[in-house]
Simulated assay, not measured.
Amino acid sequence: MEKGVIFVRVSKREQDYQRQIEDLRAVAQTQSLQVVAEIAEKVSGAKYNQERDGLQELLTMARKREINKVLVQEVSRLGRSTVEVLNVLEELTKLQISVYVQNFGIETLKSGRRNPIAQFMFTLLAEFARLERETLRERILSGMDEARRKGKHLGRPDGSSEDKEAFLKKYPTVVRNLRLGISARKTAKICDTSINTVRKVKDYIS
């Protein structure tokens, strides 16, 4: 029998996640899935994935090969942005762990292989992620131009520098991948981080 995790999340504004759990319990029963854990989060939608204890618990179980499947009500439960969702789905897929998304009614894996429909979903998510990055970049550049027009100083105050430890804390996934022996270029792609940033992290931890 396959082992799975029910994973639910609500924002701090929402009241309860019990309905999500009950719906996914019914799915697990239909699929004859042995639920080994129910992970429920009540966190702000602004939190990054590395700051979410529940999601990190899920990923730890996945990396230890303790589960075969994850049940979620919506794919958005896996990240605050398209990029974060895509990274989680990619990691779970590489670990041969299927994700069942209830509102789409699809699983990411079929007989150990990527579901073509799920692959199409990945492609859409990747495109949305690209658009998100471009939109963010345009906003940043626009804001910088506006600041320059107003005569504001950009960047850190003169003479200041970011502490090495503080810098590494900003990129825990990059640090982990590099320590696992994954190349800098591949790490940059997986973590959606610039190659220069990854190389800087690598210099700090080597």
Rank of each mutant, 00 (worst) to 15 (best):
K150A: 07
Q31M: 15
G155R: 05
E127I: 13
I67P: 02
S142V: 04
V174A: 09
V36L: 06
V27E: 11
N196I: 12
K200D: 00
S111T: 05
E162D: 06
K200Q: 07
A129G: 09
V36F: 10
G45K: 04
V101I: 15
R80A: 10
E90P: 05
Q18N: 14
Q119Y: 13
V83C: 06
G181V: 07
M144R: 14
V88I: 15
V75S: 01
T173D: 14
S160A: 12
T187M: 06
E14F: 05
E14G: 01
A62H: 06
E66Y: 12
K152M: 10
Y17F: 14
P116L: 09
I97S: 04
Y204C: 10
A166C: 03
R185K: 11
D163R: 11
A40L: 03
C191G: 02
T197H: 07
L180Q: 15
I190Y: 08
N103D: 11
S206H: 11
N87M: 14
T135F: 12
L131T: 06
R9C: 01
K150M: 07
N68M: 02
A40S: 09
M61R: 14
Q102N: 13
V10F: 04
K110D: 11
S32Q: 14
R77C: 02
A28E: 03
L168W: 09
V43P: 01
G4W: 04
L89D: 00
Y100R: 03
V70N: 00
V36N: 07
Q102S: 10
E57N: 06
V201Q: 00
A37H: 11
L78S: 00
M121N: 01
Q20H: 14
Q15W: 11
L24Y: 09
L124W: 15
A166V: 15
D53S: 10
